[in-house]
Design a protein around this nucleic acid. Structure first.
Lengths: 320, 320
DNA sequence: GGTGAGCCACAACTGATCGTTGTGTACGTA
DNA sequence: TACGTACACAACGATCAGTTGTGGCTCACC
């Protein structure tokens, strides 16, 4: 089975006869005959009954037809996903489980017609920005820690997500039944976030958060994966961890994990969209519009942001 | 782009290097190299970065990979849909909008893992039964009008659906606000069912129904399609039509059509499943079990069935 | 820094495959 | 019966895919 054969099969099914299909495909009738014969031999089944007035689908042919069309659709999408110049919008997120990916999924749900490819480059702000500049990807979500003037000319950024935080604790933890918690209150508890490598944007953020409110954020310990961490949190009366409000978890079954929002002020992780100003992709402006509208809908609360954000983006926040 | 190239791409992406992929595919490393190079030339994009330790996906490759896998999945399904011996269960329905098709869709929803192909043969009971006997299809839904002993040996039937009826009327019709209607009450109204060719099972059914209750069922008039019929019904104070309770309509927009159930007794159109006793397809018994359970759940009401059904199946109904 | 192992690309060759032209056969119709 | 239409079969040429042989590159290890 190859695409030409499938395409030919669909053409014959549509035309009702080999000759017209041949004309549509710009090949001879004999070639069409061969392709169909080859496909039939391949599938070990007869797809058409040949008559003097053309070709008619057999039952097998009728059954195969929608599959064949689907095949061509998927092939066209696969082709369009990478072909330069008319590929789908390609957006990089740090992880498929964090807020930016969740928001992209919402965008896809509300705009199902817009082709969207979500990738995870596993790169820091600078590498991801370079990828945007090179045109490998159309946009990326990152915390922008440098002033705009340090970015190269065509790059634009906009703060689009204020990701709030929740404390995750087990049922035996002192905060288990709290409705909310302030950063100051968290100073009394040990917060465990293993596996966050020093030097990353995330580590910098939590370091500054810890310093600002006198928190104890512990990064030591072996990394057995997210599920193991959550299971341990659920079991412990002492341990707590911080996570983004919209994070999707691989929730360990049968554990009673509580999610307590952090407020007054709510520490937010400020995520920006980074893109090239001269990128003409129509879906890019749609995405930006969507993100702006989502941000406009968000309630205004008292928030805490790290100094690098305050320095560069307090003006932008003022518009709300 | 051809399937071998896509398959090779996926194999290399999985293996991480050309050589191992070649071994998996039982071809030489050079052939793999050629296939990938051909695919890259075809898509005008680089899919792998070649290193001394193997091949690594580029961003384009990462984006293309899920599409490639999807392509292979769809291809496998297309192949399985027709390949003799291991194809999906193939069930014939008269129309995709009537109760049998609706029930098949429910079955598919509750058993998403079972591969199912719904076809419309456009054949009468006898032709469809012949197709079942020939093995072209695995089962068909039809009203069985002949006693079981007249069917050839391997054919089995079971009454699985009692399709109740509704009267469709517009807002100006006398029955517009009725909660229900009896067949006897319908005698006062003109019922219009254009395009029902004489001699079909349906025509026979409605003829006998008309005779039993003194109804006027009018079959004359040009056929402009279902939507035109419904639009005309909605506009008229006189016209009404009958339809199966679970029929799916191409509902004309912005018309106020009312559906009034017919009861006391409820005329039902008795649909049977027809299959070959020696068909070993595992999904067939699943489908039969599902249909039986659905039928067992249905409330017992006073029904009217045509004489051909009463003659052959009253015993079967007694079990309820 | 040299050397060898591992990995991929290029070149030449060969067999298969695809599409073409030419022809045959079956069916329906004038 | 003859003719037109529609598909299948045969022979031929060009192209393509896969094989063997070889070379270049990178990395690891001595």
């Amino acid at each position: 089975m190859d695409f030409d054969a499938v395409r030919t099969f669909v053409a014959v099914a549509d035309a009702g006869q080999f000759q017209d299909a041949a004309a549509v495909l710009s090949i001879t009738q004999q070639a069409v005959s061969k392709r169909i014969a080859g496909l039939e031999k391949d599938l070990e089944v007869r797809l058409f009954t040949r008559t003097a007035r053309g070709a008619q689908l057999t039952v097998d042919g009728q059954v195969f037809l929608p599959h064949a069309r689907e095949l061509l659709r998927v092939q066209a999408r696969a082709d369009a996903s990478v072909r330069p110049g008319r590929r789908a919008l390609r957006v990089d997120v740090h992880s498929r489980r964090i807020a930016s990916a969740v928001l992209l999924q919402d965008f896809h749900r509300t705009h199902p017609r817009i082709e969207l490819d979500v990738v995870t480059l596993d790169a820091d702000v600078h590498a991801a920005t370079a990828a945007v500049e090179a045109g490998t990807i159309d946009a990326t979500f990152h915390a922008v820690t440098v002033p705009a003037r340090q970015l190269s000319g065509a790059i634009r950024t906009a703060r689009v997500i204020d990701e709030h935080h929740e404390v995750l604790v087990g049922p035996r933890h002192a905060l288990a039944n709290a409705r909310a918690v302030t950063p100051a209150q968290l100073a009394e508890h040990r917060i465990w976030m293993p596996g966050m490598a020093a030097g990353t944007e995330w580590a910098d953020y939590y370091d500054e958060l810890a310093a600002a409110f006198g928190l104890t954020i512990d990064r030591v310990g072996p990394v057995f994966g997210n599920e193991a961490l959550l299971a341990e949190i659920a079991d412990s009366a002492e341990l707590a961890t911080l996570a983004g409000e919209r994070t999707r978890y691989l929730w360990p079954d049968s554990y009673d994990l509580r999610r307590i929002p952090v407020r007054d002020p709510a520490p937010v992780y400020p995520l920006s969209l980074i893109w090239r100003d001269d990128n003409p992709h129509p879906a890019l402006s749609k995405l930006r519009g969507y993100l702006d509208s989502r941000r406009a809908e968000a309630p205004v609360t008292e928030v805490w942001t790290p100094t690098w954000e305050s320095r560069s983006a307090s003006a932008a926040r003022a518009r709300h």
